[in-house]
Every structure is written in C-alpha cells, then in structure tokens.
C-alpha cells in the first residue's frame, strides 16, 4: 500500500427499525476526538427521525416483550459475544472519544461486555426478585409480576461513550422494553458501532434504535411524544432536565433521573431494571 494513501472518512447513519437510514433532515456533523482531530461524520438526527424511531420501537414491542425471558437472555448474550469480537475497534473508538489511554479504554470495553452479560443473565431472574406471591386474607392466590413499561427513550450518558451507554440500554431491553437511544452528542462513534453489533446479532430490528445528533434538539420531542412510555434522563443537559420532566408528565411517562456522578465501573444494582417495569397483580381463586 502506498505511503500517501488517503484514508476513507466515514459518514455514519442512524439505526432505526433494524436499518441504517440517513437522517430525514439530510444533516450530518463532524465528530472529533478528545484532542479535536477529525474522526468521522455522524448523522444529525431530527425530530422526524425520533418519530420514526418511536414508530419502529412500538412495532417491535409486542414481539420482544412477548418473547420468553429465557430467549431474551440468549439473544442479549449473543450481543455480548459479538461485542467481544469487536473489542479492538471499540477500544480504539473509546480511547479516541474519551481521551484515555488504550489500556484504560480496553478496561472500559471489557467492563461494557461484562455489563451486557450481567444484564443478559438477569432477564429470567428479575421476575423472581421484583415479583411476589402476595399473602392475602382470602381464598385466593395473588401474584405480582413485573411487565415491561413499553417504549423507553434513553438519553445516553454524554461522558461514558460505551460503558455508560451499555449500562443504560441493556437493562431497558433486558426486561422486554424497546428503546430509542439518543447517543452522546460529542462521542457518538461507540454507539454507532454498537448499533452495527446489534444489527449483526439476533436482536430483532426496532428493539434498539440509535439516534445520533444534538441531545437538546431531539430530547424534547421524545419527552412529549405520546407513544413513548418512559424516559431515561441520564444524558440530558442539566439546563433542560426540569423542562423535559415537565413535558414527560404531560403523558405520564416513567422518568429515571440521573444519579449524580455515577461510576459505571462499579457493579450496578437493580435500580435500572426496576425503573422500567410495571407490576401486574393477578388474583386467582384457590382450590376447587
């Protein structure tokens, strides 16, 4: 290969409904690494892309939430396998995006793969932890079981481009929700690669949809969208949070508020799994 070969600069696209469309707006924006050098172009998603992503997530919801928990676990574990196969690419992207040394980046990628496996393991166990056989004073069995909330809009963490993203997305889909993810605005490339991983694993199209672009532009449309059932505010700009919560209240969305300075390297608790399930309680007469 000649010395002065010109590298192929990539212009990435969105991930909606299992396909990779350009933004409806036709816009894209340059993505730089932590030192300001050009990396690639990413699609700049618009409100109509968000609308399309919600429609795709809604369409995928019956199939994904109806799949057995065991099956969801298998599918998510397969994602972790494909993630592992792209370890070097992810490490390079995380190092460039977050400005950390390659060694540290590899540690973050490994943690992200482990995180995905951790949540994949929870799919068929979460019901026994969050559900219950309720003691009732009458001749009835009473069960409570967790059911997925529906379509969840995830504003992915702005700083932790892969580990934070995985920590936010995996618990949403593990319980059977479908997700519309708005990737970190300045560090979107690991999210784009994650969408390529999802597309080549067994996750049905539409279960996870990834939008890149300006969070402050897309988030208000997702917060007010009547067909979005829950909102994860983790990556919401500080100044916008109150307003987003207010408009989410207009359609009674579940809202997950970000924890101050979350350390994603620590093993998580069940908080994120618990945030996007609804309890369904069934009463059933006892005996004959």
């Amino acid at each position: 290969m000649s010395e002065n070969r010109i590298g192929v600069a990539k212009t990435y696209k969105l991930y909606i409904g299992g396909a990779f469309p350009r933004s409806e707006s036709g816009r894209s924006y340059p993505v730089s690494d932590a030192k300001g050098a050009f990396l690639a172009n990413a699609a700049q998603g618009s409100r109509k892309d968000a609308r399309d992503a919600v429609a795709a997530a809604r369409k995928a919801f019956p199939g994904w939430s109806g799949a057995t928990a065991y099956n969801r676990g298998q599918v998510l574990y397969r994602v972790a396998e494909v993630l592992e196969g792209r370890r070097e690419q992810f490490a390079a992207e995380v190092a460039a995006a977050e400005g950390v040394a390659l060694k540290k980046a590899q540690q973050l990628v490994d943690a992200a793969v482990d995180r995905w496996v951790w949540y994949a393991g929870w799919t068929d166990k979460v019901a026994t932890v969050l559900g219950a056989a309720n003691p009732v004073a009458g001749p009835y069995f009473s069960f409570s079981v967790p059911e997925p909330t529906g379509v969840v809009a995830v504003l992915a963490p702005q700083q932790s481009s892969l580990l934070g993203l995985v920590s936010a997305v995996a618990p949403v889909v593990a319980t059977g929700n479908t997700a519309v993810v708005v990737a970190s605005a300045d560090r979107p490339l690991p999210a784009v690669t994650l969408s390529e991983v999802l597309a080549t694993s067994d996750v049905p199209g539409g279960v996870v949809n990834v939008l890149t672009g300006r969070t402050e532009e897309i988030a208000p449309w997702l917060a007010s969208h009547a067909d979005v059932n829950a909102l994860d505010l983790t990556g919401a700009p500080e100044a916008l949070r109150a307003e987003l919560e207010r408009s989410a209240a207009g359609t009674v969305k579940r809202v997950l508020r970000p924890r101050p300075s979350e350390d994603y390297l620590r093993e998580p608790d069940l908080g994120r799994l618990r945030a996007f399930v609804e309890s369904k309680t069934v009463w059933h007469p006892v005996g004959t």
């Binding site: 809604r58 449309w221 007010s224 009547a226 067909d227 207009g250």
Partner: peptide, 14 residues
C-alpha cells in the same frame, strides 16, 4: 390532527 394541534407527537393509545 392531534399532533398538529397539540404540538407534540400522538400515539395509538389515544
């Protein structure tokens, strides 16, 4: 129609 009047997207639940 709801989307046009309310200024935000509507859904099939409505």
């Amino acid at each position: 129609r709801r989307t046009q009047l309310a200024g935000h997207y509507s859904g099939p639940d409505y």
